[in-house]
Design a protein around this nucleic acid. Structure first.
Lengths: 225, 225
DNA sequence: TTGATGCTTCGGCTATGGTCGAAGGATGAA
DNA sequence: TTCATCCTTCGACCATAGCCGAAGCATCAA
């Protein structure tokens, strides 16, 4: 009887269309200004400002002032994770409209979830990494010795990542697939490295597109023989 | 810009205190009548009826008529999973009040999540099972050959479970711990079997209490030597 | 200083929706 | 049939909160 309101206050924040738009706009992990978010949400500046104040007060967002601008970002990957879970639920329960545009297909194929790879490619990555014995475990996904060697070879400074506060590996449920993909510091580093290598390019919004070279490299590296 | 409202409609349903109370009351997987839910939510019968109609229309609940009564239950484990995720988020962001009563401690120790074991014990179970090589994998958790033998020995009819539609193993994120516990048909069967064996008893609400015998048996079976 | 830009606050309008009393089925018991 | 129980529907009330126009700060540029 007592825990209902606890979740209700959070859920109510996600339950307003304007705020939901703001949050989904931030799901790619970037920080956006108030004006940008107002446009994304389809409301005026004042209205957006009000919503952002509430989301900030609830610690779902963090604000950062830079000159005349104020940048907002999600306060953590777990916020994005809850949003993805809600999308999944909305999909199963049929609340979602049937959107089969090309943009949607692109999103399902590969997209950013906060700061790491999600979609078919993201799930494929984690699945392959497990099959090859690079990664082990269930939720507290851990790196095997073989995995450490592999990712170091791939160009990732694991020691640096481990100095940070953020967990190295983290499983994150994918809304379009129904499996996990790899989040955490390693997931983020992997995506940056892929972008660096020219394997993948950021499109508009959350869309990621793999280059030809990227597809080949991806498969050669993670799905050998 | 388009997916915001999709999640908003679901989130808005969870965002009303009365409805959130109803849903958390159902998180133990049991089916409850309208009157019981009205009392749990602290509203009158008419009000609850209205809320239930909405939740039903959104496919978050399923209704079942039995004589003069109408029983509602969650439409699936994923609903409970989203609720747990929201509780976790609420906790991290500080929306939750500090509840450190004995009931809360009991809940953290062991509780029902829809129909399987959650809390410290639930996480310990999955962790131990992985360590012993009974279970393998990340999200699509799978049973190893060793695991099949073990759980059959434990008194679970795996073949019967596999005839059902429900996935055998499923990882479910725990809100109090920050790890996964075991859901799915196997998770449910395990809990029933533990209750059958007198290892664990249902308390009020979602609380589960391990008997002395249960603690010993649990540790002997899952955390040997 | 003056002006422009980005954001916040204030005030008032409006609509949405949660709430309950009262009345109306539906089911089961006597 | 008659009555009691469980639930749903209707109607009306009311509070919450989303929305925008207008005005007020804050920052930067010239």
């Amino acid at each position: 009887m007592k825990e209902g309101p606890v979740i209700a206050s959070v859920a109510a924040l996600l339950g307003d269309p304007a705020r939901a738009n703001i949050l989904t706009a931030l799901m790619d992990g970037r920080a956006l200004t108030v004006s940008e978010l107002a446009e994304a949400a389809g409301v005026t500046l004042q209205t957006a400002s009000g919503h952002l104040a509430k989301l900030d007060a609830a610690n779902l967002l963090t604000a950062e002032k830079q000159g005349r601008h104020r940048y907002f970002r999600l306060s953590g990957p777990d916020v994005a994770q809850v949003l993805e879970a809600l999308m999944g639920l909305a999909q199963r329960t049929g609340a979602t409209r049937v959107r089969t545009g090309p943009r949607d297909a692109a999103l399902r194929s590969a997209r950013i979830c906060y700061d790491h790879l999600a979609g078919e490619r993201g799930v494929a990555l984690l699945t392959a990494a497990r099959r090859q014995g690079l990664i082990d475990g269930d939720k507290d996904v851990t790196l095997t010795a073989k995995g450490r060697a592999f990712f170091t070879e791939f160009g990732i400074d694991l020691a640096a990542l481990e100095r940070g506060r953020r967990p190295l590996c983290r499983a994150c449920l994918d809304w379009s697939e129904r499996h996990n993909h790899l989040g955490g510091a390693l997931g983020a580093a992997l995506l940056s490295r892929m972008i660096e290598r020219g394997w993948v390019r950021r499109g508009t919004g959350r869309v990621l597109t793999f280059t030809c070279e990227g597809k080949e490299g991806f498969e050669a590296a993670f799905i050998p023989s």
